[in-house]
Design a protein around this nucleic acid. Structure first.
Lengths: 148, 148
DNA sequence: TTCATTAATATTGATATCAATGTATTTGTC
DNA sequence: GACAAATACATTGATATCAATATTAATGAA
């Protein structure tokens, strides 16, 4: 008896043309490259830019609030903070009110590094948004939010 | 003199609410988790599913055609093939017509593993697409394609 | 108060991602 | 045919991602 299994080529085309996970991963890779290129002169990746920007708050952030904002696993955040701490851009200190928790904040040099990159982010983002219908990403943002 | 740099909190809110790179990375993480969960019983991640499905072609694929399809760096593809080769799901052989190139193909057991996962992909994807306006992701796919 | 449970984070191991760089092969030009 | 340039892919090193699990601290119930 034969165990040969076939998958119709139409299935491949269906996945290629419709899979939202694939479409989003693909766009995520392409956008990451684009923003990484733009931010490279400032020593930041797109993810580090987003993470550090999320720490620019009046009061120090908890890890949980950041993982929720970034839809990121907690262990990923722990790892992502390491290189930023090493560079002296981010402070991670125990919360005196709850010593399990951590308080995350930008250092002055971290704030300076981030501030230097903001104009490039603005320019890169504006150029990107122009590629969308009506030069406006609102409906894309809305659709993406529905997937979370 | 003071070197203190400030970034207006409004800038943080602007990035948080509008950055397309951030929005897409966030959705990419969330969707990856969702599909990884669904595909875990079959020993596949979302990326491995997409990659293997892209190899279900009448003729063996070149690496270049796959990286273009997946908008993926060539070195990422080289790395991603390794665990699939180890499991005997994918064959990578030199192209006799051009010995720099590789021919990528699914093995019978790779095809079987992939075929087993297709129904779960369909169900997971259908549930996802329902969350979008009119239960249709065409508009989202179109917007994402504009970003590539 | 004790102790089981819950909560917040860290560690480990595997895969994913890409820049920088290296190697082998092919191609085009002379 | 020789050789410079271009092409296709691999390797290395750093960061990103998450599952599984461990650690530490706070909480709640008896």
């Amino acid at each position: 008896m034969s165990n040969a299994v076939e998958i119709p080529f139409e299935t491949t085309l269906l996945v290629r043309d419709t899979c939202l996970c694939l479409h989003v991963q693909r766009a995520a890779r392409a956008l990451a490259r684009r923003f990484d290129d733009a931010l490279r002169p400032f020593g930041l990746t797109n993810g580090q830019f987003s993470l550090m920007m999320s720490l620019n708050r009046p009061a120090p952030a908890s890890m949980g609030s950041v993982t929720a904002l970034l839809a990121m696993d907690q262990t990923t955040l722990t790892a992502a903070l390491k290189p930023l701490e090493r560079r002296g851009w981010v402070n991670v200190v125990p919360n005196p009110q709850d010593r399990r928790a951590r308080l995350l904040s930008l250092t002055p040099s971290g704030t300076a590094a981030l501030a230097a990159a903001v104009p490039i982010w603005k320019a890169t983002h504006a150029a990107l948004e122009e590629r969308l219908p009506d030069g406006n990403g609102d409906r894309l943002r809305s659709d993406l939010a529905n997937l979370l």
